[in-house]
Design a protein around this nucleic acid. Structure first.
Length: 480
RNA sequence: CGGGGUGUGGCGCAGCCUGGUAGCGUACGUGCUUUGGGAGCAUGGGGCCAAGGGUUCAAAUCCCUUCACCCCGACCA
């Protein structure tokens, strides 16, 4: 009986296991995160979606500051001549750049790119700002939006304009740059796992998959519930690839002029897509408490009776005072059932129901979004208990996602096994390091190399594709 | 960029084949009764039918063009 009811309530969402793409679109729209706009491929972030982004920004920015970075703001327009300075970089980004060709009714002498990423403008400024070893390291970050003229788009996962942060740093030595690159990848991993409750594989990209202009690219890769991988963040070591054409030089302690070593690293609103596809279920969005704009929704039941309103206001005040993000849903004209479904759709981690029967018993009814577990909580010490529950939900969501990731990762030794495995997860395997083998795997199975984990304990000794001696452990998967 | 699909009050759809006063559900406004898993009755407001062009006495409907979005591939955070 209860099961029939459940299906009736969620009939508005396409079931996840029937059509994952449609389910994703349904959730994004019905949970009110964003809306489509008249601008091709560009979304409007609505308050609830932007609220998630603001919390992500706050958590992440604190980590950047703690590791010695400062925020700056750069122009959104980049003169074409700057974009052309690093050959691999321009080759990688040129096809998807949007151009400004006119200003004030006049055709511009040099067209301006709307930034697809800001390496070139940062480098130009760093060339002015860096003179001496005393200026280094220079570790800046900016929060902004960038534009890439994508052919096909999907909310949060791939849009023409997207919001992100891009860190750009300058160092005196190769060692320092590499240390920075790995440190920030570590920040991303810790952030994904502890704030988003999204487990990731951290490792190094192949040459084929690395960033245009980078010497080495590292990534954190998440696993979505349809078995596809999603790159959640990247960190690049440029060496002197950019500092040479942009002439970022400094006078070192030994009195010689040297090219600086640079890094860049970025994460975007795409992480919201990762959260949706990692945690969501048949009833909609499921948000980890740390990035939930509303952590607890308080629902008065039979509000006119027995001091329910007063009790709700009191509870709301106490939870707010404790620093929790709460919503008191005292809207009239909506049934309790309607509200239950609404807040579940929006992924609110914890719901407190306050009715006359609860109050008589000196308690409230609580329902967790992660497990649907219903429990009675005494009014006495409620704030502490709610805080504990939120922390437990945060952990539990990670545990569930981690179990899923592990269950969808398998060591494979043959191309046939690899082909089967990438239909529903990661294939962990040995790879010889040759581009040709990556190309063959992509050709046959539409799967790409994701990254090489730092733990390179061999799982075999020959390449899964060509059968030659191989010493690289690589994850392959189909990816977003 | 290929293949398929959809554009009609905020949302979901019917109407189109066979041209003739733009409809239904829901949401929204108001009033009353309700409220522990998507409440009920009454009443009211809201749409040049994606855009542009054509055929016709007459176009949501037929023809052409463009745009946007969705799904599946290829390409890229």
């Amino acid at each position: 009986m209860a099961k029939d009811n459940k299906q009736e309530f969620v009939q508005h969402i396409t079931p996840r296991d029937v059509d994952f793409s449609q389910w994703y679109t349904d959730v994004v729209l019905k949970s009110d995160l964003m809306d489509y706009t008249p601008v091709r491929g560009c979304m409007a972030l609505k308050p609830y979606g932007y609220g998630i982004w603001e919390l992500i920004q706050a958590e992440m920015d604190a980590r950047f500051k703690a590791t010695g970075h400062k925020n700056v703001a750069m122009p959104m327009l980049i003169p074409e001549s700057l974009l052309l300075k690093e050959a691999d970089h321009v080759e990688g980004f040129a096809p998807e750049v949007a151009w400004v060709t006119q200003g004030g009714g006049e055709v511009l002498p040099e067209r301006l790119a709307i930034r697809p990423t800001s390496e070139t403008i940062f480098c130009t400024m760093y060339a002015k700002w860096v003179q001496s070893w005393r200026d280094l390291p220079m570790k800046y970050n900016q929060w902004c939006s960038v534009m890439r003229w994508e052919k096909s788009t999907r909310p949060f996962l791939r849009t023409a304009e997207f919001w992100w942060q891009e860190g750009h740093t300058v160092h005196a030595t190769a060692e320092e740059a590499q240390e920075e690159t790995l440190q920030m990848l570590g920040v991303y991993q810790e952030f994904c796992e502890h704030v988003l409750s999204v487990p990731v594989y951290a490792g190094q990209k192949s040459d084929k998959e690395k960033f245009a202009g980078a010497r080495a690219t590292y990534s954190v890769e998440a696993m979505m519930q349809d078995g596809k991988a999603l790159q959640a963040g990247t960190s690049h070591n440029f060496g002197t690839n950019f500092s040479e054409p942009f002439e970022i030089q400094f006078l070192d302690k030994d009195g010689t002029l040297k090219f600086a070593h640079e890094t860049s690293w970025g994460t975007s609103t795409r992480m919201i897509g990762a959260v949706i596809m990692t945690h969501g279920d048949e009833r909609g969005l499921k948000l980890p408490p740390k990035i939930a704009p509303i952590q607890v929704v308080i629902l008065p039941i039979a509000a006119h009776k027995g001091g329910v309103n007063e009790a709700c206001a009191d509870i709301a005040g106490k939870l707010k005072a404790a620093g929790l993000r709460i919503e008191l849903d005292d809207r009239e004209g909506y049934s309790a059932g309607w509200k239950f479904n609404e807040w579940e759709m929006k992924g609110v981690p914890l719901r407190l129901e306050v009715g006359p029967r609860d109050l008589e018993a000196g308690q409230v009814t609580a329902v967790r979004r992660d497990t649907y577990e219903k429990m009675q909580l005494p009014l006495e010490g409620l704030t502490e208990k709610v805080a504990e529950l939120l922390a437990d939900i945060q952990r539990n969501m990670y545990d569930i996602a981690h179990a899923f990731q592990q269950a969808h990762t398998k060591v494979v030794h043959t191309m046939q096994e690899l082909g089967e495995q990438v239909n529903g997860g990661y294939a962990k395997t040995m790879w010889c390091g040759e581009r040709a083998c990556e190309d063959a795997i992509k050709e046959q199975f539409s799967a790409t190399s994701r990254n090489m984990p730092f733990d390179q304990t061999p799982v075999g000794d020959t390449c899964v594709c060509c059968g030659k001696k191989a010493d690289k452990v690589m994850y392959f998967a189909k990816a977003y």
